[in-house]
């Protein structure tokens, strides 16, 4: 990995309180540029809330978020996206009535101001056809490009999620459970895919599957009840007593 020491993403005492419940509790997270960083923890540990905080979907109660040393605390989701932080969603989150190709075209246009051209034909959206085709091929959806996503299989929708994140050419990719609900075969294919697209980028992902975490992550942060319980390389973390009792013990033989 090309870890050259720069910090891609940093949170300082990041806290989110929902009606008295501390979902994320003074988290100091440091993600190095080029790293693949996994967030793990039992259900309700605050992983998704942390993701929502990092991408502006939820405003923090206190604390700060910095992306490459720029303060993005309290920024809106689209502003965070425009600073090079792209996310996928835990629950497949697509535009039901559009095709895969139309999705990728939309994603490529997202960071430009071209979307306001109401006087032009939508055929213009496909202007960057090779780039669209390239992204669809990367995630293995080229043959299904013109099918409405409502008709795609679950694994294919997950793959499209990755294509959308990739289309933004992000500096930091946040993947929320990229293998959620997949069978073994799809999981392995997704691991391959994420590994391929992670090259030269910074990735933060959440996953419950320890096989996925072990194969992808070079650094693991374990969350429990909104707090960081442990952090380190995968092998360090998995041998940590506290972690074993909190989480890994049960998940490992799944």
């Amino acid at each position: 990995m090309t870890t050259n020491g720069r910090v891609a993403l940093r949170t300082q005492a990041l806290t989110k309180v929902f009606r008295g419940f501390r979902a994320v509790d003074s988290v100091d997270l440091v993600v190095r540029e080029g790293g693949v960083h996994a967030l793990v923890g039992p259900n309700g540990a605050g992983k998704t809330t942390l993701f929502n905080l990092l991408t502006g979907f939820v405003a923090p109660t206190s604390g700060a978020i910095r992306v490459f040393d720029e303060d993005v605390t309290g920024k809106q989701p689209e502003q965070v996206a425009r600073r090079g932080v792209a996310r996928s969603f835990q629950i497949t989150s697509l535009f039901e009535t559009l095709t895969s190709r139309e999705h990728v075209e939309l994603a490529l246009q997202g960071l430009t101001r071209q979307g306001f051209r109401f006087w032009r034909s939508e055929k213009l959206l496909g202007g960057n056809r090779t780039r669209v085709d390239d992204l669809l091929t990367q995630v293995g959806l080229m043959t299904l490009a013109d099918k409405q996503v409502g008709l795609l299989a679950y694994g294919q929708k997950r793959a499209l999620e990755l294509a959308l994140v990739l289309a933004l050419d992000p500096r930091v990719m946040l993947l929320d459970e990229p293998t959620a609900g997949m069978g073994t075969e799809d999981v392995d294919r997704t691991i391959e895919l994420v590994r391929r697209i992670a090259a030269g980028r910074t990735v933060v992902f959440v996953d419950h599957n320890m096989h996925v975490v072990g194969s992808l992550a070079d650094r693991v942060t374990v969350l429990q009840q909104g707090k960081i319980l442990a952090e380190g390389a995968y092998d360090e973390v998995r041998n940590d007593e506290r972690v074993i009792t909190a989480y890994l013990g049960e998940a490992d033989h799944a």
Partner: peptide, 9 residues
């Protein structure tokens, strides 16, 4: 999907 559109920038 408004949230998704925002996440795309």
């Amino acid at each position: 999907n408004t949230q998704r559109a925002r996440a795309l920038g």
